[in-house]
Design a protein around this nucleic acid. Structure first.
Lengths: 209, 209, 209, 209
DNA sequence: GTATAAACGAGACGGTACGTCAGGTCTTTCT
DNA sequence: AGAAAGACCTGACGTACCGTCTCGTTTATAC
């Protein structure tokens, strides 16, 4: 049961042909780490838009070619760097109450969105608007997992009878998390912890009926 | 009172010194239109990211300088072109029922989001992630106006007693519209007309209590 | 009649469309000079093979694009720089004796070949082996003119009766100058001033018969 | 005395330590041949300048390292490939007349220069202008041998009394062969068989006096 | 036999330069 | 003075090879 490994996690997006035999010299894993590390650092220092492959290469003490050999474009690299750094953050709680579970997790997410990572993820979603690959990567490697966990909270609530069974979890999750990303991306209003409370109490009012 | 027209609409963002005297050659109004038109066309053809000032200038038969003289950057120009083209679409209805008003408007918005304009606005929000000016312009020139209209719908509902008076309209609007933009930008699920219905019925359940 | 100007000489190889009217900003002549100067300097410092456009651009304080806008390739640029610097050297004498004229000029050429310019011209001919454009440019802009002058020396000799009239001047000139270039390019033996004397006395023995 | 074989001819320039013992796996002679063959083919196909070690390695089905283990640089390899292919061509005749011997051999050389090999040797001399090693190799492995043979023709002539004994053979050979290489490299005039005749009759006029 | 040593194909690696593109500024000429 | 054309410097792009360096495998002598 505990055998569900989250899989390798290490190399996520970069080209890797595992088919045949692995001929020739092995790819140095340190190099990999150096590049991701340099990317993360620069991302915080100068932001996504001003990030250049050349800059990353220099910072990592690596040839540009080495980067291009492993990642098809800037976005994929940044996504790798980003996910590697944040994959384990913002855990989902299990308090016994759906509403409380979601409220707590949303508060954590808001706090996280107000930090550097929030900025980065906004840029990634922004970049995904003209990069289908990045968009797909963002969905499959960031959103899907978290979404699945949130769905389980709802499922638990349904089993406990807190929520009526015919509720579409997708709509509920969108109604809760959509506004957070909305404010993050558009910035028309601040993302305060209290915002989570208000959203939960508004959206989840009377879901047991 | 209601005569406050949204004003000229024509030149919105571009520098325009009307104060002094209007010396020298007049700015050709056709040029203006040509540039906006070329921008719109190219925006649809190749997208925001691949859009270049040089390309627009060429397509419009205009010097690069002329563009730079009128707009500070690509984003402003695109926003101008975009808003000019869509300012009058997606009207807000007044059926006498808040829920129905919002539902109808959201359906229209969804329809519109599924077209070219939806694509464009997604790119604009995307671009705004690394362009503070564009972000601000997007908020003040696109969102604010529409938001105000939506707020009035809610206000009417409060006056009619459909909605309890202490409800925070910002949270409600976010809970309704946030999910739409969320799906538009992230694309994890389709934007169907029925989605509007589901959202409205989920979020607005029991708001009169 | 004597109005045959050797033409402008200034801009020789670089693209220049003089047809219409010359719209837009003028090409800065200083830039031109800076580039040629930097090229010459670097040519002497590091040689033709290690010469890079990037290096020249940097040394000249100029963008790479500016160079590419004016010259199609490294060779043309170098040829321009080279010819501009040496176009007036190694004059052809007129002593009244063909043999003496040629001998003197060959001695001067040998001296010149032993200097930096000789090295450069060797590299240019070398480069011309895989660059048809450079080859043509070298012939038309360097060789042709000098060849014509040498031909006139021979013509004068024929008129004076020093040389029999049916002699093919091309073969004679090749027999005299070919060996110089041969030694310059292959380096199997030194280029001494006495070599000129020996060649002249060998090749021109009995040309009056 | 005539036992001085020009040695093995097979591996000429490539590193080869025969001293100690020859431990480990032997160098595959087929590999050697494959590399030289690929080099020759590519040389004809794309020319010296566009020739790359990587390309040769691929064509030969060989690792780059294997090439670098055997030749210090591109030039040496090309020279090996070239010489291996042409070492036995253009024999020196012995008709009993110096003038006739040289004339015949020059005609053969001209014919050969007009073929692919002429092109290649021009490129090699060209490449030698920025590669001292190649220059030296070209002289010692191509020119010297042929030059020695030509010198013997002249020597025979002197012994027969056809040519006066004090003639410097170097100058004579330069005066005859220099022009051929001159035209080959500069291309200002065609290399026709008749050119050999003209040169011989011009340069060798009255050498018996 | 079984080490051990080199050759070998493959390909990763840090570099350098390439030639192109777009950015945003400046200059010239014409209207 | 405004407009159009285009020169200009800058800086990053993605590519091609360079020559060096591991890899794992294959082939040979040497113990």
């Amino acid at each position: 049961m505990s055998s569900r490994k989250v899989s390798d996690t290490k190399t996520l997006h970069c080209e890797e042909e595992s088919s045949v035999k692995a001929l020739g010299r092995k790819r140095c894993p340190l190099t990999h780490q150096n590049i991701l590390c340099a990317t993360r650092t620069l991302l915080e220092e100068i932001g996504f838009a001003d990030l250049t492959i050349e800059g990353i290469a220099e910072r990592a003490g690596v040839g540009k070619t080495t980067i291009y050999r492993r990642w098809p474009n800037k976005a994929s690299l940044v996504l790798d760097a980003f996910i590697e750094a944040t994959i384990k953050e913002i855990p989902f709680p299990d308090t016994g109450s759906v509403q409380e579970d979601l409220r707590l997790q949303m508060r954590r997410l808001i706090k996280w969105m107000n930090g550097v990572e929030g900025h980065t993820i906004a840029k990634l979603i922004g970049g995904a608007q003209d990069d289908a690959e990045l968009a797909e990567a963002f969905r499959s490697r960031w959103l899907t997992g978290r979404r699945e966990e949130a769905r389980q909270i709802i499922q638990r609530g349904k089993e406990r009878g807190e929520i009526r069974a015919d509720l579409d979890p997708e709509v509920l999750l969108d109604a809760l998390y959509g506004p957070l990303y909305f404010r993050l991306l558009v910035g028309h209003a601040p993302l305060t912890p209290g915002y989570a409370d208000k959203l939960v109490s508004l959206v989840m009012r009377g879901l047991d009926s």
